[in-house]
């Protein structure tokens, strides 16, 4: 019987059979792990997306689902329960990672980023941190954007970085990108550009996330961005 203990963040859970649940957890050292939680029906509070847990995963063969025994380390969901935007973020991030991350593939650096994101979700600048989380996820998945001046496509006149190529993810200077203006994505101010707000930020990350997710649309992202637009992307 193979047994492994780790720390993880709950991405999603769903009922299974008679009072059990299957849970998907993004763990620090084993990546996205799934397992059967016996009596999971009575552990719904623990199995909410975003909650930080420690767990033991047991299985006889690698091809088996195995059982997962989680213990709550930090209840993130309860801390942001009355904040619509933050709660939607938890839900969206859980859904995003469930689809984006392959099973059993560790991403220790991205786990640290995610851990910091969820544990500080009650703090300030949540939208900004969500944008950088998406950027880090793209990097972890091999779709990293090249937005620094050193990596960018620049011109001899030193015009500022203004665009991002939708194909290569590389920043492009205003002069070099101008002939392709209609096809280019705007490099928002948050990522080193000269103009553009959060909608441009999420339009940019959304474009590459769609590529990373094989054109899959996430409805929770759309709902979240509608919520952000209504509140002008202020912390709520």
């Amino acid at each position: 019987m193979a047994e492994r203990a780790d720390e993880g963040i709950v991405l999603r859970s769903w009922p299974n059979g008679e009072g059990h649940a299957i849970v998907s957890v993004f763990s620090a050292h084993h990546g996205r792990v799934q397992g059967l939680v016996k009596g999971g029906d009575k552990k719904k509070a623990l199995l909410q997306p975003g909650n930080l847990v420690t767990f033991v995963h047991r299985r006889r063969l690698d091809s088996q689902l195995g059982t997962l025994s989680p213990d709550l380390e930090k209840d993130i969901c309860g801390l942001v329960f009355y904040s619509p935007a933050r709660l939607h973020m938890l839900r969206y991030v859980g859904e995003l990672l469930y689809y984006a991350l392959p099973e059993e593939q560790p991403y220790p650096r991205f786990f640290d980023t995610l851990r910091r994101f969820v544990t500080e979700l009650n703090g300030a600048k949540t939208w900004q941190r969500l944008a950088f989380l998406e950027l880090d996820l793209l990097g972890a998945l091999g779709f990293g954007l090249a937005l620094t001046p050193e990596e960018a496509v620049t011109d001899a006149h030193g015009s500022p970085l203004y665009y991002v190529s939708p194909k290569t993810g590389r920043a492009v200077s205003r002069e070099m990108g101008m002939p392709y203006h209609d096809k280019m994505l705007l490099l928002p101010k948050l990522f080193g550009g000269v103009e553009g707000g959060f909608l441009d930020v999420f339009k940019l990350t959304g474009h590459f996330l769609r590529v990373a997710l094989a054109e899959r649309d996430l409805p929770s992202r759309k709902t979240l961005l509608e919520l952000g637009t209504k509140s002008d992307f202020t912390d709520a």
């Binding site: 623990l46 909650n51 930090k74 209840d75 801390l79």
Partner: peptide, 11 residues
């Protein structure tokens, strides 16, 4: 009580 429930109860 877990911290999340306590937090909700306090709020």
């Amino acid at each position: 009580m877990d911290e999340g429930t306590l937090n909700l109860a306090l709020t």
